[in-house]
Design a protein around this nucleic acid. Structure first.
Lengths: 261, 261
DNA sequence: CCAATATTGTGTTATTTGTACACAATAATA
DNA sequence: TATTATTGTGTACAAATAACACAATATTGG
């Protein structure tokens, strides 16, 4: 058996809290769509949220930041807890078939290390965190257990293991309800963007169309955008302005919870 | 040593998840103020939130309901999770002095059962739940470890153990932000109430005054109140109408998240 | 080069909602 | 029976929202 792997799993069992995990819904935005960073386990068509365990000497929030940074290379990112999933049957919400595949995969990847298999298949309570990330600044990296770490469009999610689809659904509900308190735009858009970009982003989160001209007027009136030069190329039409955020003003409004929509 | 107590603690260690707990912020409303149900440990001036552990065979939500019912006698009550507290140092946020008192008290109450003391003083991650309760229907009950279980006004809270004051603060923030999605009125008021009662309740949660006549018009327009006969006695003034909720309509609006304020 | 096209920035209007009071009605009290 | 406090409703102005109009302007295709 791979010595490094065995040491690695022994380290986890030794250093981490048993029965508690973290799952991260890492959100980005591109092509007018929300995207989620997902991992695929080696040689299996099993996708999951990036997650991990809480070290005995770190805060839960720190653990979430560590997991996020490990997968995206980013460390100063908007990251927050949204819900803790503590159903006794949560590991069994998908088919018994899938449950069996997961167990077999764990055995194969961990070379039948029964002590670790037992540890990792005990009942877990997992806390869901969501991160808002600029896709272009991220550098997705899998590890030796995963052969893929990819951005997947919200409209084209694969079936995920355990209750990870429900975790995402809950996260998106949370996002919509809390939208007036979250720095959606600042976190998900690149430095400079058009008004249309911002509108499409809010539409993607709210899942409803917004009136273009009223959106523009409302946002400009809130006064957290800097207007820059015109974008010189694009489609066969009038060129839009580029904007960037006045972070201080935006944060102030968001903290207060301005009624955007 | 008390055989029953020893069996009780052995049962907890045997049947509950280690390192995970639940704390309930049980809210009621009376005398135009929000109240919280608190416990006081035997022979000590140490107050805390009603809490408990999660049995290995129950959902976390079930555990919260069990704890709530144990303290209030109520089982059909609005109860929801609001945050999970996972700071590594959370048990040490209060003074070292208090930490020592807690340990001593545990030793005394549990007759130096060192195995249980170790179990109960390990690092815990706790999930905060909040309940909205009609005080008049509740029947607060302490247990053999607590000599008091009382409703305390929000404006007159004692210092609580560990991070319980922060847990309450977080809960109240949550309440304010989520107010449009929570059945505050239906859960906290008695069957029949006046418009003023409802207004004062919303004011207590929002911590800001609302215009009386505009409040009345807005609420009536939303259409979830049944108007009853005039209240025949009260102060030296015109008698107000009594109202009750049309639960179906109220729930519908709350689920949708109507913009009350 | 120039008309056609798509999209942008801003304007206009009607409607709804919010805000701040006004005031008559009325239950108890003195 | 006048006084008082509070209630239920009215009103008038300001502000926000919603729906649509239209000129301005990059690109494209002939």
């Amino acid at each position: 058996m791979d010595k490094t792997l065995k040491e690695f799993t022994a380290g986890i069992m030794e250093d981490c809290l048993p029965g508690n995990s973290i799952d991260c819904v890492i959100l980005g935005y591109a092509d007018q769509e929300l995207k989620i960073l997902l991992l695929k386990w080696k040689d299996e068509n099993l996708w999951c949220l990036p997650g991990g365990f809480i070290r005995k000497d770190e805060d839960m929030d720190e653990a979430a930041h560590r997991i996020l940074e490990m997968r995206t290379g980013l460390h100063t990112v908007y990251l927050n807890q949204f819900h803790t999933f503590g159903s006794e049957q949560r590991s069994k919400v998908n088919s018994a078939m899938q449950h069996q595949r997961i167990t077999q995969m764990l055995k194969r990847l961990h070379d039948d290390d029964s002590r670790f298999i037992e540890w990792v298949t005990q009942r877990f309570i997992t806390t869901g965190y969501f991160a808002l990330v600029d896709i272009k600044k991220s550098d997705p990296s899998p590890d030796f257990l995963c052969d893929k770490c990819e951005w997947k469009a919200l409209s084209d999610l694969p079936e995920l293991i355990i209750d990870h689809n429900q975790i995402i659904a809950k996260c998106l509900d949370h996002l919509r309800i809390q939208i007036n308190y979250l720095p959606i735009g600042l976190s998900l858009l690149p430095e400079k963007f058009t008004m249309k970009d911002l509108q499409k982003l809010y539409e993607a989160v709210l899942r409803k169309p917004l009136d273009r001209s009223n959106f523009q007027r409302k946002i400009l009136k809130l006064g957290f955008l800097n207007r820059h030069e015109k974008q010189m190329r694009g489609g066969a039409h009038k060129a839009p302005f580029l904007y960037s955020f006045n972070q201080a003003k935006y944060d102030e409004l968001i903290a207060f919870g301005i009624d955007f929509f």
